[in-house]
Design a protein around this nucleic acid. Sequence first.
DNA 1: GATAATTGTTATTCGCTATATCAAATACCG
DNA 2: CGGTATTTGATATAGCGAATAACAATTATC
Lengths: 172, 172
Amino acid sequence: MTVSKTAADPLKVSRAVAKQDFDASSDDSLLHLGELSGLLGYSLKRAQLRVFEDFLRCVAPLQLTPAQFSVLLLLDQNPGRNQTEIANTLGILRPNFVAMLDGLESRELCARMRSASDRRSHILVLTDKGRAVLTRAKKLVANKHEARLIELLGPENHAALLDMLAKIAHEF
Amino acid sequence: MTVSKTAADPLKVSRAVAKQDFDASSDDSLLHLGELSGLLGYSLKRAQLRVFEDFLRCVAPLQLTPAQFSVLLLLDQNPGRNQTEIANTLGILRPNFVAMLDGLESRELCARMRSASDRRSHILVLTDKGRAVLTRAKKLVANKHEARLIELLGPENHAALLDMLAKIAHEF
DNA sequence: GATAATTGTTATTCGCTATATCAAATACCG
DNA sequence: CGGTATTTGATATAGCGAATAACAATTATC
């Protein structure tokens, strides 16, 4: 955690109404979003859809969804964990995680191993193929996907955006 | 546009590794998110879910979802529009917008009126009740919902966040 | 050793999204 | 004018993500 317990951390971004309204009294152009553009939830959802869309395009050669990519990433960094732990961390409900793992396992990207200490749980492990795919995916994501976002926002703004989103997710 | 042409506007948040290593060889604590916390899409989705969750809570007395609220808002600011125009603006597919309007219309929050100039289209209008509900909803959203977000992030950061999200949604 | 709790799983439901298709109405164009 | 294409609202349908209940096997608790 520790996204920032401090109170004032400005981030001087050019505020400026910019492309507010345009007087579309009766043309077929875009409608007035009005107060909708000030609704954080609305902008969040719109931006999230765009980012996921681009993610899918960039990583299309590997046929990985954002959720699948996040699972592989988490397995790589947390070896020896079981399904419940991984699912909980990602906010996925255990029942829904089963089919997801089935998909990854059928493609031999990961495997379930019965734990010796607790024969109820399945220890999740990345296969060699899974590690290879993850490596390629990380490169695609970093070079094609995140790079464009950083270029669009600027590195400092991009970092500030990440911090604010984490803060919302954890402290709101 | 113009989220920031300036170079350095840090936002001094503990960008450092922070809670990186903890040796979680086998405790039930949180797992290492690792590079996942640097994935904008992941943070976006997490934050969006939290914001929507809070929105629903704040506006629960009026029984409005974020999508329904956005429709009412848009109808109020764009009178005389038909279903296709409203749906397109919100990124809702026309077929899916039908059931949504049915719900709002059955609650007498809005109404469909056949257009005189084009008898195919339905002009959407807010009812008096719809306007009243919208007014109350706006107050709840502003005072209970957005106010907390602004307090959490700070007004400048909140504004900067909105700008960046809009930029992603429109220019990415 | 009996009861409670946990793990993975199945089944099912709900909501949102996406596509194809349709009838009615309008636009287009020779 | 008349015939074709387009548009609008609507229906049906499929798919996916999320959510809950329930179950067998295993482990924890007392």
